[in-house]
Simulated scan of single mutants.
Amino acid sequence: MNTQLVDTLVQIIRSLSATEQALLEKQLFSDVSHPSTLELMHLAEKGGALDFLYDEPDIYTTEDGEPV
């Protein structure tokens, strides 16, 4: 294992701006075969599969249970 190369790459990545780091991350993980967390959140919000929950009664209140 080339730890010197890894250490150098980490230093270079940390020296990048936040925008450059975001671009690097996007390019590194753009061909991932599974959806991202953001994509899953959007699907859950817009997909309609959980819309039935809007019709569920509110059975819990802030007075239920014990404070943590």
Rank of each mutant, 00 (worst) to 15 (best):
M1W: 12
M1E: 14
A22E: 10
H34F: 14
Y54E: 13
T8G: 04
S30F: 00
Q4F: 13
R14H: 10
L40G: 02
F29Q: 07
A44N: 06
T62L: 12
E39W: 02
E63V: 13
T37L: 15
T61Q: 10
E63T: 15
A18C: 01
T62C: 04
F52G: 05
E63P: 06
S15C: 01
G48M: 03
E25T: 15
L50C: 07
D55N: 13
Y60G: 06
N2Q: 14
V68F: 14
E45K: 11
S15D: 01
E66K: 13
Q27L: 11
Y54M: 11
I12N: 09
E20W: 02
D64C: 09
T8E: 10
E45A: 12
T19D: 12
I59Q: 05
A22W: 04
V6Q: 09
Y54N: 15
E25N: 15
A22D: 09
T62V: 08
T19Y: 06
P35M: 01
M41W: 06
E39S: 09
E39T: 12
T3S: 15
V10W: 00
I13D: 05
H42Y: 04
A44D: 03
P57F: 00
T8W: 04
S33D: 09
M1C: 14
L38E: 15
I12L: 15
N2R: 09
D7M: 10
E66L: 12
A44H: 04
K46P: 00
G48C: 04
F52I: 05
L9C: 12
D51G: 01
M1L: 14
E39H: 02
L16N: 03
Y54D: 13
T62N: 09
D64H: 04
L9Y: 09
S15Y: 00
K46L: 05
L53Q: 07
Y54L: 12
Q21E: 02
Q4W: 07
S15K: 01
S36G: 07
L53H: 01
D7Y: 06
G47Q: 06
T61L: 08
A18H: 04
P57K: 02
D55C: 07
S33P: 02
F29W: 09
N2F: 08
V10S: 01
L40R: 12
Q21Y: 01
D55M: 08
T8D: 05
P35G: 05
Q21R: 13
P57D: 02
P35I: 03
